Amino acid sequence: MILNILGGVFLALCVFAAMHDVNRLTIPNWLNLTLAGLFVPAAAISGVPMEIIGGHLMVAALAFMVAFGLFAFNIFGGGDAKMIPAVMLWLGPDAGITFIFVMALAGGAFALLILSVRQLVPAAVLPGFIRAPFEENAGVPYGVAIAAGALVAAPASPFLANLLKQISLFS
Rank of each mutant, 00 (worst) to 15 (best):
G96R: 07
F101N: 02
L89P: 00
L112P: 05
A109F: 15
L13F: 08
I100E: 03
I5V: 15
E51K: 09
L113I: 14
A18S: 10
T98S: 13
A111K: 03
N29R: 12
I45W: 08
N32K: 07
G78P: 09
A124D: 13
A86R: 02
A86P: 00
I52T: 15
P49L: 00
P122K: 13
N23L: 07
M83Y: 05
S46A: 13
H20F: 11
G54N: 12
G107H: 10
A17D: 06
G79S: 08
P49H: 07
G128A: 14
R24K: 08
Q119A: 15
G55T: 10
F71E: 08
M58F: 12
A106S: 14
G37A: 08
F76M: 09
L113R: 01
H56V: 11
N74P: 05
A63V: 02
C14L: 12
F110I: 14
A123S: 14
P49S: 13
I45Y: 09
G96A: 15
I100V: 15
L91F: 09
L57T: 00
Q119G: 09
P127L: 07
G47W: 03
L115E: 04
M83H: 02
M58A: 12
P122G: 04
F129N: 09
V9N: 03
L112W: 11
A72F: 15
I84A: 11
G107T: 08
L13V: 13
F101K: 00
A123G: 02
M88G: 00
T34L: 15
N29I: 09
M19S: 10
T98L: 15
L31E: 02
A124V: 15
A123H: 12
G37T: 05
M50S: 15
I52F: 06
L11M: 12
G78S: 09
L33H: 01
G92E: 03
P122Q: 10
M65W: 14
G108A: 13
I114Q: 03
H20S: 11
V48W: 01
I53L: 14
V22Y: 07
L57Q: 01
V121F: 10
F39V: 00
F39E: 00
P41W: 05
V125A: 07
V102K: 01
P85C: 11
V125E: 10
V9T: 12
G7I: 02
